[in-house]
Design a protein around this nucleic acid. Structure first.
Lengths: 129, 129
DNA sequence: TCAAACCTTCACATCAATGTGAAGGCAATC
DNA sequence: GATTGCCTTCACATTGATGTGAAGGTTTGA
């Protein structure tokens, strides 16, 4: 097994304070191995996973929601964890969460557009100096 | 002047607790008139404005950022508040914020897609019961 | 005129995410 | 083998967004 890193390196690679990586673990978002001496050991995909978590947190999702949907977000659309154990309730929950996310996207898109429209209008007026 | 409402009605119309409407005012996001007796008086567009604020807060923006960009998000692309007073710094700030918003959108879109892909895969497998 | 429903300010509590520091063990290097 | 840097846990502080309640004035309608 190669490419295991400790918390410091993961922190450097992701820009996320080690303190937060421990917090995410406490929140059940990360599950690093442990070395014989108790040090946390992360595998390479953890980098991606942390970025994922950061992005979702920054986008206003709570750790609780992230914990719920994270298991279903693992890249490889191939290997799901037993899709047969997916109850109708979980499916409904995922659909609901996808909708909530969509609402956020719509809201942010509208505002991005408004900002761009404003900037364009100003520029057209040649008013920026 | 017609259609001024007090905080209770605005709260009912938006679903936002009165407590929060006062908080948004404290944060300089709302600026209601005051009646002779000190009651807050909101005009009709306040409903839209509050929804705007809620959406942005839910999407992970802070009141501080919202305060900064809100003035430039007022619907009518016509009547900007003196676009000539827009300094290059403010324009840069807006562009930056639009970019941050775009990053959030990208992140959320990816995850929405992942959820949908998962649901589709599960459904294809006929695994939901 | 009284009650109920509304409003005001002030203050303290909570919750999630994050910062920070102490006290101590482990690892590599000189 | 001592210094330096990284790691551990524990614990308390802070910040932003909220909840909640007290104490008191206002509006409305029976």
């Amino acid at each position: 097994m190669r490419s295991a890193m400790r918390i410091g390196e993961l922190s450097r690679r992701t820009g996320v304070p080690a303190r937060m990586l421990r917090y995410y673990e406490e929140q059940d978002l990360l599950h690093p191995e442990r070395a014989a001496n108790g040090y946390r050991l992360y595998d390479a995909p953890a980098v991606y996973r942390v970025q994922q978590i950061r992005g979702l947190l920054d986008s206003g999702l709570t750790t609780e929601i992230i914990r719920r949907i994270l298991p279903y977000l693992d890249q490889p659309d191939e290997i799901h964890p037993h899709p047969d154990c997916l109850t109708a309730e979980v499916a409904a929950l995922l659909r609901e969460e996808a909708e909530r996310i969509q609402r956020r996207i719509d809201c942010l898109s509208r505002n991005r557009d408004a900002i761009h429209a404003y900037l364009a209008a100003v520029q057209r007026a040649g008013a920026v100096r």
